[in-house]
Amino acid sequence: MAKKIVLETKGLTKRFGSVTPLDSINMQVREGEWVAIMGPSGSGKTTMLNLLSCLDAPSAGEYILDGVATATLTEKQRVAVRREKIGLIFQQFHLVPYLTALENVMLAQYYHSMIDSKDAEQALAHVGLGHRTGHLPSQLSGGEQQRVCIARALINQPAIILADEPTGNLDEANEEVVLDLFKGLHREGRTIILVTHNPELAEFSDRVVRLQHGRVVHDESAH
């Protein structure tokens, strides 16, 4: 019994002038899948992530996310898609420096729909930060900041979670903690797309997509 397809790209292409960092990507991701996108620097990983997260519009091709064809949306509509369907996790965490951990999570609620501080507290407790809700990002360690970022990505129940090198700025101990969180999310049945060049991180995914020179050179289930 195949699960529903949440994400599908058909001939997804991005061009910047004469450069084509991403060339005709065809890919399907089913609900609950954990996909790792890998590749060396300059292979088009970041461009792909920007397109998948609707931060950027493709030059050609189609991108259907949770039943919505997004390729031809306006910037304003793409904002709405990001808000409703995508949870973003960054390598540099990107927390608002003057808001506390809890408020950073609430910020996502604020832009999404309504604010429920208990819900946000729960989300922080879920990533193991129930005791640090009132701290500013500058008072948190890197691992803690990343966990706030994860809690923020989860708070609106997105259709997919897009993570860009989530452990890139972390030490080993924290990498472990974050990895465990991702495993947990996977168990809960979340759809995760992880962009990384760290093979260890890819090891736990269901499927690895390898990019090279903007094309998919390898796409297979890891297990």
């Binding site: 904002v79 990001r82 808000r83 990107h94 996502a108 999404h112 923020r152």
Partner: peptide
């Protein structure tokens, strides 16, 4: 950067 983040997580320009 802060503005970029807000946009990324779904803030409208108006907001």
């Amino acid at each position: 950067r802060e503005i970029g983040l807000m946009k990324a997580i779904g803030a409208e320009d108006r907001e």
